[in-house]
């Protein structure tokens, strides 16, 4: 009878990574402890606050609830993997959170931004109800949700403008 291999490999922020780890190790511990990607935060450790949110194959997932074997071979994006057109630029969602006062202490912010990215990728123009639903797994204890709502609305507009400004694949080929 077969047991899961202890060699874990995945693509993290577009980079191939391999580790010797226990297959039940939490993705949260891999990211922060083994890969030094401490932008992903840790708080409740039971799936309730969203501070540890990452994207796995584009879907938001709580890394404190995910075991190594569940994300092996997949594409993982942490907050460090988001940026604007160039690597040294902010992503439009990050800009929107800055401009709209979408954070105070900033502890929940990486998780909020990751959930916003997943929401806008799926639904580029969400209404208020859809924003609340998309972010209902992320708690903020200090900003108040008004600024966060404004930040997501502004991020949606910015992402749309960016999409219309970017040349389409066909234009590039021509």
């Amino acid at each position: 009878m077969k047991t899961t291999n202890t060699t874990w490999q995945a693509t993290v922020n577009r980079e191939h990574r391999e580790l010797q780890i226990d297959p039940s190790r939490r993705l949260l511990d891999i990211i922060r402890g083994d890969l030094d990607l401490t932008g992903t935060k840790v708080s409740c450790e039971i799936g309730r606050c969203g501070a540890c949110m990452v994207l796995i194959d584009g879907e938001p997932v709580n890394s404190c609830l995910t075991m190594a074997y569940q994300c092996a071979g997949k594409e993982i994006t942490t907050i460090e993997g988001l940026h604007g057109e160039h690597e040294d630029q902010l992503h439009p969602i990050q800009e929107a959170f800055l401009e709209e006062g979408g954070f105070q202490c900033g502890y929940c912010t990486p998780g909020m931004i990751i959930s916003t990215k997943a929401l806008l990728d799926q639904n580029p123009l969400p209404n208020d109800h859809e924003i609340k639903e998309g972010l209902c797994g992320n708690l903020c204890r200090c900003t108040g949700y008004g600024g966060i709502m404004r930040a997501v609305q502004s991020a949606a507009t910015k992402c749309q403008q960016q999409d219309t400004q970017l040349p389409t694949q066909q234009q590039i080929i021509r």
């Binding site: 899961t4 580790l19 010797q20 780890i21 226990d22 297959p23 039940s24 511990d29 075991m67």
Partner: peptide, 16 residues
């Protein structure tokens, strides 16, 4: 291939 720096406090066998 790197080895995890922080060993898991409760390692377990995962069956397939």
């Amino acid at each position: 291939i790197e080895t995890s720096r922080i060993p898991d406090p409760f390692p377990c066998q995962v069956w397939e």
